[in-house]
Design a protein around this nucleic acid. Structure first.
Lengths: 216, 216
DNA sequence: CGATTAATTGAACCTGGTCAATCGGAGTGG
DNA sequence: CCACTCCGATTGACCAGGTTCAATTAATCG
């Protein structure tokens, strides 16, 4: 990949890395930092579609479809690796294995979005919050941001509520229930869960899906 | 593509083409017929994640990630073109252009799911129903299933409700409102909308997205 | 130590869900 | 041709999970 890299971009918290409707000439890989993808309505209603972790690939939609459907907003300082979008085609042609990896990432994103859709559409608030926390915990774990029982989760409750399709108030009250039940505590950007499995159980979620990249 | 085809599969309405959790050895292209993708909870709650039209590509998740996150259910008789999943890798390697097409399709699916998530999470029932109808209309139009103001839409209201995350009853009542307002009528598998744009407006949706599709 | 933003909590309210009938069209057997 | 059944569509009445409004508390920062 290194040969296609054209630079690095460093952004501040709360800045918009990519905006809905953009036809960005760049693709990014997240080297460090956290953020969200979100789509929104003209009146301000907002849906967070995924949380962004180090290692994530940004801008595929813009490269493939011409423009982006969602915005990407940094939650913490973020360091990005920049690629020119016109080179995506060269990349796939010159290295089918990389093309395969991109398809793999896209399929994973699709799976995540389907699961999120099930949560938002059919789970109760308690179930949805539990699964949301479980997912954050897993992803933090995948990038080595879990120590003991505590995972890095530097997002405000507002973002979490927008990801679940719930109001901020109700999300807060539901988090309180889980806290009082001793299932999970989230404060100061740190998510603590003594028993992570319990979160999946509460959400009726079967965590047995393979999540590691297959070897080629 | 023809060289990888190993046969055709014909299925009856209401049959399960692929099931959640399957590690199907096959990939499919829909030659004819309609269906849905859906994920569900152990207690039966169900979320339809997309409607399936002729031309759709099924089973990418199973091929890439090992197993499928959603089920695929036929709504009408369906005719499928079958490929062996192990050949996906050969396909991408031997023809990067096809690999590119697959990435294109995956990016489009991702966009659709994000839009659906916004509907389910943040739109009111009326807005969500309007956008749902608009989307069905567009997709039917893309595959040449619109005559005059009427689009083929052979799904029961149950499926539509499950796609919107609404109850069947409330979906029905909302459709009634649109019918009485003269915006759209859906009965007998035929969706009639004198003014399709009005559906997008009701949903606060900007329909100006590029949607060209490469041939697969 | 104010100022600002995020988290928390309580109370009133409403959108959409649940329950329970009824209607309507298609298929079946007599 | 009609009675009967089955299933999807439709409707009305009542209910509740979650939203909105409005404070209050906590944490951060110059």
């Amino acid at each position: 990949m290194a040969e296609f890299k054209i630079g690095e971009l460093s952004v501040e918290p709360d800045s918009v890395v990519l905006a809905e409707g953009d036809a960005s000439p760049h693709l990014y890989t997240v080297l460090d930092g956290f953020g969200v993808r979100a789509v929104s309505l003209p009146d301000g209603r907002r849906q967070v579609t995924n949380f962004i972790f180090p290692g994530d690939f940004l801008g595929l939609q813009a490269a493939m479809l011409g423009e982006l459907n969602h915005s990407v907003i940094a939650t913490t300082p973020m360091l990005l690796c920049v690629f020119p979008r016109d080179k995506l085609w060269d990349l796939i042609r010159s290295s089918p294995a990389r093309g395969y990896d991109i398809v793999w990432a896209a399929a994973g994103e699709e799976r995540f979005l389907e699961t999120a859709l099930l949560s938002v559409g059919r789970r109760t608030a308690l179930e949805a919050v539990a699964l949301g926390l479980w997912t954050l915990f897993q992803r933090a774990s995948d990038v080595g941001r879990v120590k003991k029982n505590a995972a890095s989760a530097p997002w405000p409750q507002r973002d979490f509520a927008d990801a679940l399709g719930l109001s901020l108030v109700h999300t807060n009250k539901t988090l309180k229930k889980l806290r009082e039940a001793g299932v999970a505590t989230w404060s100061n950007g740190l998510l603590t869960a003594p028993n992570v499995d319990m979160l999946a159980e509460l959400a009726h979620f079967d965590p047995s899906a393979p999540r590691r990249r297959p070897l080629l």
